[in-house]
Amino acid sequence: MRILFIEDDQKTSEYVAKGLTEAGHSCDVMSDGRDGMFQAQRETYDVLIIDRMLPGLDGLSIVRSLRAARVGTPTLFLTSIGGVDDRVEGLEAGGDDYLVKPFAFSELLARVNALSRRPPVQETKTVLKVADLELDLIKREARRGGQVIELQPREFTLLEVLMRGEGRVMTKTMLLERVWDFHFDPKTSVVETHVSRLRAKIDRPFEAQLLHTVRNIGYSLHAPR
């Protein structure tokens, strides 16, 4: 089983990762909330274990963002915030289970194994579709109306991010982080330039427009309404 553990306390992360590895699982550890969220979106995991108090982005926000992006990976909150209202808040945010620190590793392992046995909320998609636009993540190929569209690597990644966020507005900052891994604004028109090139390939040769500019906010890719 492949597990992502988002935890900023080094002793806890090392202890849990060691135990999960000894139990036969693969465990990736991220210490920053924002980086952990992007990792959970980029890679496929069987279970996520997430602390609530994290630098960059808190655990509740991570899970809410993942669920909004239709990432349904089973998620366990592992945190020192243990009040009844806190547990309810975590579950209502999209968490599947909640374990309070300090904890017994045997219980953590049992809960992780139980989560992994649940039917998946959704199958991992290898082909993204919006209207007649398709993006094959395995073949690294884009098609619209059955016609192959030649994309540069960065254009492909940009389109993937936009399609995964179908119908949602993606700000310039979000695109800079997810496509270029910039955690600051480089004060360039790199996003605008690539969106313009992408639009010329996936929209202009076709009748219906899919890629829309949301003035002063960002961009949204969705089927004609």
Score class of each variant (00 low, 15 high):
residue 43 E to M: 04
residue 79 T to R: 09
residue 89 E to L: 13
residue 118 R to C: 00
residue 54 L to H: 02
residue 124 T to K: 15
residue 43 E to R: 04
residue 50 I to Q: 01
residue 89 E to H: 15
residue 135 L to K: 11
residue 96 D to F: 10
residue 126 T to P: 11
residue 126 T to Y: 15
residue 64 R to P: 10
residue 95 G to L: 05
residue 127 V to K: 04
residue 53 M to K: 01
residue 144 R to M: 02
residue 115 L to M: 07
residue 47 V to L: 11
residue 75 T to N: 09
residue 103 F to L: 12
residue 106 S to C: 01
residue 79 T to N: 05
residue 41 Q to M: 02
residue 123 E to T: 06
residue 68 A to K: 11
residue 86 D to F: 03
residue 98 Y to Q: 03
residue 105 F to K: 04
residue 147 Q to T: 12
residue 115 L to G: 06
residue 83 G to L: 13
residue 131 A to T: 10
residue 94 G to Y: 13
residue 111 R to S: 09
residue 141 E to G: 07
residue 86 D to P: 04
residue 74 P to N: 00
residue 100 V to L: 06
residue 135 L to N: 02
residue 142 A to I: 09
residue 49 I to G: 06
residue 78 L to A: 13
residue 98 Y to K: 06
residue 69 A to I: 05
residue 146 G to K: 14
residue 138 I to Y: 03
residue 135 L to M: 11
residue 67 R to H: 11
residue 137 L to C: 10
residue 77 F to K: 02
residue 111 R to W: 00
residue 61 S to R: 15
residue 114 A to D: 06
residue 135 L to Y: 08
residue 110 A to C: 05
residue 74 P to G: 05
residue 108 L to Y: 07
residue 99 L to Y: 03
residue 78 L to K: 14
residue 53 M to F: 00
residue 115 L to W: 01
residue 78 L to F: 14
residue 140 R to S: 10
residue 120 P to V: 14
residue 117 R to D: 13
residue 137 L to M: 15
residue 70 R to N: 14
residue 49 I to Q: 08
residue 135 L to V: 04
residue 94 G to F: 08
residue 52 R to K: 06
residue 112 V to D: 09
residue 73 T to D: 03
residue 87 R to V: 13
residue 113 N to P: 00
residue 85 D to S: 01
residue 73 T to Q: 01
residue 69 A to K: 09
residue 84 V to S: 13
residue 84 V to H: 09
residue 74 P to C: 07
residue 135 L to C: 11
residue 113 N to V: 08
residue 108 L to G: 12
residue 110 A to S: 05
residue 91 L to E: 15
residue 145 G to V: 10
residue 47 V to Q: 01
residue 106 S to Q: 09
residue 42 R to A: 06
residue 107 E to N: 14
residue 137 L to T: 08
residue 51 D to F: 02
residue 100 V to S: 07
residue 132 D to W: 11
residue 101 K to C: 09
residue 122 Q to R: 13
residue 95 G to M: 08
residue 84 V to F: 14
residue 133 L to I: 12
residue 115 L to V: 05
residue 62 I to F: 07
residue 96 D to L: 06
residue 121 V to L: 11
residue 76 L to Q: 06
residue 63 V to P: 07
residue 91 L to H: 15
residue 81 I to V: 14
residue 69 A to P: 11
residue 133 L to W: 00
residue 133 L to K: 04
residue 71 V to P: 05
residue 132 D to V: 09
residue 102 P to Q: 11
residue 72 G to D: 03
residue 116 S to F: 05
residue 51 D to Y: 01
residue 42 R to V: 02
residue 72 G to E: 08
residue 76 L to M: 10
residue 72 G to K: 07
residue 68 A to M: 11
residue 70 R to Q: 11
residue 63 V to C: 14
residue 57 L to T: 00
residue 58 D to C: 01
residue 64 R to I: 01
residue 120 P to A: 13
residue 72 G to Y: 05
residue 87 R to H: 10
residue 71 V to I: 11
residue 59 G to L: 00
residue 109 L to R: 04
residue 121 V to A: 11
residue 50 I to E: 00
residue 122 Q to D: 06
residue 146 G to F: 10
residue 59 G to E: 00
residue 96 D to H: 14
residue 69 A to N: 12
residue 87 R to N: 05
residue 106 S to T: 11
residue 87 R to Q: 13
residue 59 G to M: 06
